[in-house]
Write a protein that binds this DNA or RNA. Structure first.
Length: 430
RNA sequence: UCCCCGGUAGCUCAAUUGGUAGAGCGGGUGGCUGUUAACCACUAGGUCGGGGGUUCGAGUCCCUCCCGGGGAGCCA
């Protein structure tokens, strides 16, 4: 008997085939039962009758949800079936009769679902999100590949602080004492620039922030790019081209998943260059006009970002923040030493910051002073400072948060659904 | 770390001014040959998060601890 995927049903109409999968749902009506079977490629309504199966029917009728089965039957067109095809099952082999599945057909609370994440991923909604994530990551890699970037896998164990020393996870590392889980791959990307020109990395990053919000995870994935001989303006042009490409391609490829997620893609389709650009100064005066009492020099809070994004129908860059609010490696604005050449990219519809980027400080003395001003140990950064001693060039880069981007594309309320197994301050299981 | 909200059946929730703990789903049993979270009938199922206190009487009020959730700061 020919084995096939459920997704191949349209080409198998009238034929007798075998499918292998799990019972996603079951309904019965006396002597006929409907088994909804999921095989990873799609879902299929299997029709079983006492007439066809004989004694096995009584067991099938009571088969627990999520039991694994091998079903053989004829593929027929049926408008009432999901997908337009169903299988008239002639033989059903029960591979494993499941225990009562904890996740029912009705709603559950977040605590229960997160504690059963290993089973929750089977739900159609979660599977759809994970497929969108897969497509997004594939398209990110494709964009970089198409545009001459080289992948550089940066280390997870590090001895330098990427962003801020207070948010590091430390690990005992043999005789070397403490090392830290990487907060960013950026510094290492910078080191490979003179070798490779345009580079990127895509991997997990770790931040021990005591954050309990819908936008934070302690372990999250980030795509970071770094380009030599690239200034701040060119960096923004790259980012808007990059984001437009990955969003457009992903919503096109995963249209059916987004329909299932009830995501209205009207706004997403507007993600095309150029994006809006406002300066930090303009952002402050905008917020003050809206009634905020924010002072120049303060970082923008979540509420402030929401107010700003609501004024625009596509992503917006906020440029040139005060130097003291940003990381040590950002390049001082030659015209305004109190500011740095950087930009955050805010996604619309309240999704907030999805990219942080900047031109990097390429002057040895300025960088050394900033490292000292930030109470960082220059000895630990010797290798990073070296990069400004041997052919320093203007260069820029950015980092895109994968989960925030998935949440934006899918219209999720919380980033915890955007990663297969979320890690949060009070949750590392399963 | 701080602020707010919550913890009652396997799950989601209800229980009026403090007065003998309830529903839906899920489970079990039975019925139904075209169901769409199928439906109908019956049925089992509880140390009301833990501890202490007030009271004739506490799921309900007070104290304390534990565990979650949302937000702030910080960030992607």
């Amino acid at each position: 008997m020919e084995q096939c995927s459920i997704s191949e049903f349209p080409a198998q109409e009238g034929k007798t085939v075998t499918i292998k999968g799990w019972v996603a749902n079951r309904r019965s009506s006396g002597k006929v039962s409907f088994l909804i079977i999921r095989d990873g490629s799609g879902i299929c309504q299997g029709v079983v009758t006492k007439q066809d199966l004989g004694d096995v029917y009584n067991e099938v009728k009571k088969l627990p949800l999520e039991s694994s089965v091998i079903a053989t039957g004829t593929v027929v067109q049926e408008t009432k079936a999901p997908g337009g095809y169903e299988m008239q099952i002639q033989a059903l082999d029960i591979v494993h009769k499941a225990d009562e599945f904890p996740i029912g057909k009705k709603e559950h609370g977040p605590d229960f679902l997160l504690s059963h994440r290993h089973l929750w991923v089977r739900s159609a909604r979660q599977a759809a999100i994970l497929r969108v994530r897969d497509a997004l990551i594939r398209n990110i890699r494709e964009y970089f590949y198409n545009n001459g970037f080289t992948l550089v896998d940066t280390p997870i164990f590090t001895t330098t602080y990427g962003e801020d020393s207070t948010n590091l996870f430390s690990v005992d590392y043999f005789d070397l004492g403490k090392v830290y889980l990487a907060q960013t791959g950026q510094l290492y990307l910078e080191a490979t620039l003179p070798a490779l020109g345009k580079v990127y990395c895509l991997g997990p990053t770790f931040r021990a922030e005591l954050s309990k919000t819908r936008r934070h995870l302690t372990e999250f994935w980030m795509a970071e790019a770094e380009v030599a001989f690239c200034d701040h303006k060119e960096n923004l042009a790259l980012q808007e081209d990059f984001v437009s490409y990955i969003v457009q391609k992903t919503i096109k490829e995963k249209a059916s998943e987004l329909v299932y997620l009830e995501r209205d893609t009207m706004q997403l389709e507007k993600t095309t260059p150029p994006f809006h650009r406002i300066s930090y100064d303009e952002a402050i005066s905008l917020l003050r006009k809206k009634g905020s009492d924010i002072q120049w020099g303060a970082d923008l809070g979540g509420d402030d970002e929401t107010i700003i994004t609501k004024l625009f129908d596509k992503p917006v860059f906020i440029e040139n923040y005060p130097k003291k609010t940003k990381a040590f490696y950002m390049k001082q604005d030659p015209d305004r030493p109190e500011c740095v050449l950087c930009a955050d990219l805010l996604a619309p519809e309240g999704y907030g910051e999805i990219i942080g980027g900047s031109q990097r400080e390429d002057n040895y003395d300025v960088l050394l002073n900033t490292i000292k001003d930030n109470q960082l140990d220059p000895d630990r950064y010797k290798w990073y400072l070296d990069l400004r001693q041997y052919g320093s060039v203007p260069h820029s880069g950015f980092g895109l948060g994968i989960e925030r981007c998935v949440a934006w594309i899918c219209g999720l309320k919380h980033v915890r659904e955007a990663i297969p197994f979320p890690r949060m301050i009070y949750r590392a299981y399963p």
